[in-house]
Design a protein around this nucleic acid. Structure first.
Lengths: 246, 246
DNA sequence: ACCTGAACACCGTTCAAGT
DNA sequence: ACCTGAACACCGTTCAAGT
């Protein structure tokens, strides 16, 4: 157990005569991650991109892991926070819009999912995003323990769905140049004992994977919101003042 | 784009006078991953554990990534496949049992989630698991496009929920020795503009995180199954013969 | 205060050479 | 056929020394 000493406890150093700051470093890191995933991110490469030596980064950031933490929070800021304010949308539409914005961000930055599971997320944008979600669920009529359970239901599904989507995206792009005869043979044999799976695979070959993903996401979202809706009517309409502290 | 040349296309070499095989290598890899995550898995370490040099592993496995693929499929085999056979359970209970078994595996092997998103999963246990899930959903009354959408809904939620759970597990263990005053200060300030979040955090301090996770998982599962149930009655009861091929 | 340059202890992977 | 041993091209991180 490392002693609890998060990046968020140590603010950026005040500017003086230097050539670096956290902001520029994080920007380069996000760029590298976007361009080629974790494989293309190294301290040496970030430094090179900034015209500097690797060691100098450690003046601003304690470890590579901290840099990833900062990068994660930065892209979390891309999710629509305006949905927290009253928008005139009914709660289902608002929750769906937040989920779609969340999903879009995860698809833009494919490396983010690897980060989400590895540590608690203590950046300001993470907190702001959570509050936005809680606001929507609160307006929907949830409170107390059900408030975060309802939000988690939607958030967790977005994350899980995009994870699966990313894993299969390239493969489902269909018989590209990489699909040789041996691959087809293996797949045939692998599903031979699995009739339902074979049926689904046959039915989905040739389908546009992007549209397919959209369809599934919409189906899932509808299911989730239906499930939530049955639990909502028991509660009176609820405004978004803070709950009394415990 | 690497040409498509999965591990699953190249069977293990026939046994002769050798000291290694895929099985032993994968077993050691899983052990190392379980004990300390990705950080403790290296080709050199696996080799050392087997009394061998790193280079020799490459006789059985093309890359470290392939080794991870094999390790993933191995632990996928720990999920209850017996639920695919008729059990006498109603479909909700059967789906719930599969989801719980899935979740338990992910919690036992915390490194698995990192693998799930990184590539399509072509191992035999992955296919068998998919067929099991499809069987349950088919018995529930789903067919065609809704068959895999329904399964994905449940699977994706399990994955997303465990991801979030693992991220927060240690932190929510509460004010351990690592929680110094600075951390508390930071958290207070960070949630100060977020009343709903502050309320939830206050309400959850001191709660047993394991029980809390269980509660949320159950809530979510109930929601999902309710959502699915409303879509199921329109279809006649359905046996699990293969669908006609396309 | 900020950055360099060199070093340390690791990696994954390749490949001649041994048996 | 199977494994060794050395090498290559990288890593993250540390730290004296420079400015």
């Amino acid at each position: 157990m490392p002693s609890f000493d998060s990046v968020w406890l140590r603010p950026d150093r005040p500017a003086r005569d230097r050539r670096l700051d956290r902001d520029r470093i994080v920007a380069v890191a996000v760029e590298l991650l976007d361009s080629g995933g974790h494989g293309t991110l190294s301290m040496r490469r970030v430094a090179a991109e900034l015209g500097v030596t690797a060691g100098s980064l450690y003046w601003y950031v304690r470890t590579k892991d901290e840099l990833l933490e900062l990068a994660l929070d930065r892209v979390l800021g891309e999710i629509r926070a305006d949905l927290g304010e009253p928008t005139g949308l009914d709660w289902r539409s608002a929750v769906a819009a937040l989920a779609r914005s969340h999903r879009a961000m995860l698809l833009r930055h494919r490396w983010v999912l690897q980060e989400l599971g590895s540590r608690p997320n203590l950046g300001p944008n993470a907190f702001a995003l959570a509050e936005t979600g809680l606001r929507l669920m609160s307006r929907a009529g949830f409170a107390d323990a059900e408030l975060d359970a309802a939000l988690a239901l939607v958030n967790d599904h977005v994350v899980g769905a995009v994870l699966a989507e990313l894993a299969w995206r390239d493969a489902l792009a269909g018989p590209g140049p990489a699909w040789n005869e041996a691959t087809a043979d293996y797949l045939r044999k692998a599903v031979s004992g699995h009739p339902l799976l074979a049926g689904r695979m046959a039915a989905s070959t040739g389908a546009d994977p992007e549209r397919e993903s959209e369809r599934r996401f919409t189906f899932a979202l509808d299911c989730l919101l239906d499930g939530l809706a049955t639990r909502v009517r028991s509660l009176p309409a609820h405004d978004d003042r803070p709950e009394p502290a415990a």
